[in-house]
Design a protein around this nucleic acid. Structure first.
Lengths: 238, 238
DNA sequence: CGCCCGCTTGATCGTCATCAAGGGCGGTGG
DNA sequence: CCACCGCCCTTGATGACGATCAAGCGGGCG
């Protein structure tokens, strides 16, 4: 049906599926369905088993877990064109996080059977899948590195540089924060208050300029070195 | 030659290679070499590109990164029968961590060409590879969860329970710490001092007994609840 | 025997979370 | 058009947890 044709067109444009043959694509599309979520809606809870994975068409998803005390920690923000849930699909275990829409969002769900078939037919696809998971692992390790041996401000800097790097790199680089500060703070494992203070101090140091969620990075190189001095940074004293 | 035959025997016993045909195994073995490391020796530095991955035959490896200030953080401890470096092999990126032997260690290095061939011939192998990476991802996410929303003592408890769970589960469970306290502390993202104090307080609470690196967990259930909230979370809906 | 190393114990300090107000902005309704 | 309210963000004050600094201890080994 027409809906499936739409989905096929979507899938074709994903890097992951780039080199699949048409029949493999339609095979895949056969095991898919579209899902609409309104802002705040929960797709699945922590502990759910996944029989497939999801691609974001438009909108924005967050993956997070919450502590017994009700606090929650955002692990990942998933933007259009990206996917989530593959790893859980491949191991037969409950999902370690829950998924919630940060905005009205449209997803495509892809059942694992189609993926497994594609793996069987096309080893290059399997390799792309492996490379994709490896990239996830890599960025997760970078997160761990950040939590372990960077201060809060350094994590904020790293985050800003990452965003800045994504856009064209002539100074000053300007961009918009990809989510509310509350969500970003959680993603960086700090409180909104601390994020606010960090942005403020970077701002005062003349390294960035903040206007709502619009950020201008004035000096990327100096920003990347902030706080890495052998001597304690002579922060402005009270 | 005989050496390769030895390696073949080793590889056959790895879960990952369990169902490969003999010729695939020998194919694999052709792209391998053995590596001996003495305690403290570094296998590769952070930033190195990997053209294959490693399996620990005996001894013990640690994967870690170090901050500019010289502090280091252990990401993973790899025991005999386990492997590391696959993820880096699949993406073409520099390795985010360095690898060092914690004891005199023997490794088998497996070149990626053999792995890629196995993926091409045997899609079940590809799936096992995917499942393996997924498991890594899963445990890394659990680490992140630990760092984010558990206190130091809770992380220690989690670690102990994991070790206890690995052995037979009649109380009291007794086992030996898998590495020096210094290394374990780093693995848990805390200082040796803090680890020492945490073990001490658990000991005083009558939950465990410590004698050097021998640990007895006296009451697993009570241990697992230590420090959790007196009040259940008042989950707020929608 | 004495030294070194891994671990423990104690005292202090810094960073960041927490608690508590206050401001800005958009939406809604008068 | 303005008043009001809610939400998000900011700003300030305080406190707790864990890192750091500094000894002390025991045990293995040259």
């Amino acid at each position: 049906m027409g809906k499936q044709a739409d989905i096929s067109r979507l899938l074709i444009n994903l890097p992951l599926f780039q080199q699949l043959r048409d029949d493999e694509i339609s095979n895949l599309a056969a095991g898919t369905r579209e899902i609409g979520l309104s802002k705040g809606q929960i797709l699945f809870q922590k502990g759910a088993p996944l029989e497939g994975f999801y691609v974001v068409v438009y909108g924005q998803m967050k993956l997070a877990f919450s502590s017994l005390q009700g606090h929650e920690k955002v692990v990942s923000i998933v933007d259009p064109g990206h996917s989530f849930g593959e790893a859980v699909m491949f191991m037969e275990k409950p999902c370690p996080v829950f998924a919630q829409a940060l905005a009205d969002t449209r997803l495509v769900y892809i059942a694992k059977q189609g993926i497994f078939a594609a793996i069987d037919h096309d080893s290059a696809f399997a390799r792309r899948m492996l490379a994709g998971l490896s990239m996830r692992l890599h960025s997760l390790i970078q997160d761990v590195e950040g939590y372990s041996l960077h201060t809060s401000t350094q994590r904020v800097i790293g985050f800003l540089l990452q965003l800045a790097g994504a856009s064209t790199h002539h100074s000053p680089v300007e961009f918009e924060l990809p989510a509310s500060k509350h969500v970003i703070a959680s993603r960086l494992n700090l409180t909104p208050e601390t994020l606010s203070r960090a942005l403020h101090s970077l701002s005062e140091a003349g390294l960035i300029r903040v206007n709502g969620k619009r950020i201008s990075v004035l000096d990327t190189t100096r920003l990347s070195q902030f706080g890495s001095t052998p001597y304690p940074p002579c922060a402005k004293e009270n």
